[in-house]
């Protein structure tokens, strides 16, 4: 695995100078490689894992919506996927194997927001055959990060 990418994916706040020390290279080289990764969409963005439930007034509701869609003759799943991912409510989206086609993660302020979004925006799309909405009750882990209850360090300092 590329060491620079694996460092960035786990520690996105490291500076280029810190990265260069660990990788035995120059700051300029790190900067150039990151720019290349960004240009080629290897690094697609930077985001923080935030537990919004802990920010008063910013609580969010998230749902996983299973969509069954009819692929279009000319463009397969791509055109309908493109139509759906353009909605700002859609946080993540994946084409799936198995019982349904698209897994769409939607966030809103309330349950009602999401219900309305499904009813008025997703369901009416021509290719959409059916929807099944699953509301998330609790987040335990996101993007590899445990959101609560960090395991305490049980190591003894004596050795």
């Amino acid at each position: 695995m590329d060491k620079l990418l694996s460092l960035l994916s786990e520690n996105p706040r490291l500076t280029n100078s810190q990265l260069s020390v660990m990788l035995d290279t120059t700051e300029e080289e790190v900067e150039r490689r990151i720019a290349d990764f960004e240009k080629n969409s290897v690094i697609c963005g930077y985001s923080s894992v935030i537990n919004w439930d802990k920010v008063p007034g910013s609580e969010k509701v998230t749902a996983l919506i299973e969509l069954k869609v009819t692929p279009r003759r000319d463009s397969g799943y791509e055109a309908v996927a493109d139509e759906i991912l353009s909605f700002p409510e859609v946080e993540s989206m994946y084409l799936m194997s198995g019982g349904y086609d698209l897994a769409v993660y939607v966030t809103g302020k309330t349950f009602q927001d999401i219900a309305m979004f499904v009813a008025t925006r997703l369901a009416p799309i021509d290719s959409v055959i059916s929807t099944a909405t699953h509301f998330m009750l609790k987040k335990y882990k996101e993007n590899g990060v445990r959101l609560e209850g960090e395991t305490p360090d049980e190591r003894s300092p004596l050795f």
Binding site: D153, R155, S156, P157, L158, F159
Partner: peptide, 22 residues
């Protein structure tokens, strides 16, 4: 000598440690 020093640490909260040998 390591043990002696860590009796202090055991009494305190919010210690961030770079002391372990494992």
């Amino acid at each position: 000598g390591i043990r002696k020093f860590f009796d202090i640490a055991a009494e305190m909260d919010d210690i961030i440690s770079l002391s372990v040998g494992e």
